[in-house]
Design a protein around this nucleic acid. Structure first.
Lengths: 116, 116
DNA sequence: TTCTATGCAAAAAGTTTGCAGTTAA
DNA sequence: TTAACTGCAAACTTTTTGCATAGAA
């Protein structure tokens, strides 16, 4: 089983790709192997640390902090750096209009709890 | 119906919060109203432009570009700015160990297609 | 009455799991 | 003979939808 595409595939896409080579491949196997690769830290799932959708009432541009202990998602005051979009547009042929940053670590509250 | 928490709630959490005030509230209503608020651009769903999980075979630190037309997720060459974590740690009491950036816009390929 | 919003339950979408059967060491 | 892996189908989790009803204008 190989994993060397340059893309960020969905399980579904992987299934379609491999279906040609292994005609009776099943989704169960795809997910099972993806999870094994995640455990072995050979790949990552791109997520927000929870299986639920998250909603954001703060419409203005702002960055997020995601606590890896309690999974809460917090707003940051850090000023948004619009120049970053330009950096992308200059160094690639994409047209980036905005961006989002998530910081990962341990939040204020969990740090305090750990000390307590 | 109110939406003014400072957090980034899951539908589930909202349901629990409102359950006290509206004892026979149902999940259907919560999701329906969240989707109305999204249409009205009063809130946002924090996602990657697709309902599927995405997997990343590139374990090293790197940033992503997400095309809002074709929903593909592409790696960027932009150098990762480790100093950003420090900026967060200095201005808040959280402990940020790493971060992730997603740029949103129209990708190379879709731009070309549009030009025809 | 008409229009919008709701509860409920069923369906859909995406992911995980149990089990029995293969295959390879 | 084991141990690891697989297909299949069923179960599970999260979100969406259909329908009949309730309440407001």
């Amino acid at each position: 089983m190989l994993q060397n595409t340059g893309t960020h595939p969905t399980a579904d896409w992987i299934y379609d790709q491999l279906k040609g080579e292994f005609p009776n491949l099943s989704m169960g196997t795809v997910y099972r192997n993806l999870n094994i690769l995640i455990e072995q830290r050979l790949i990552k799932k791109i997520d927000f640390g929870s299986t639920f959708d998250r909603f954001d009432a703060n419409i203005g541009p702002h960055y997020h902090f995601i606590c890896e202990r309690c999974s809460s998602v917090l707003d940051l005051e850090l000023p948004v750096d619009e120049a970053l979009n330009e950096r992308v547009n200059v160094s690639t042929h994409h047209n980036a209009q905005r961006h989002r940053i998530e910081f990962f670590g341990i939040c204020d509250r969990c740090e305090k709890k750990a000390e307590g």
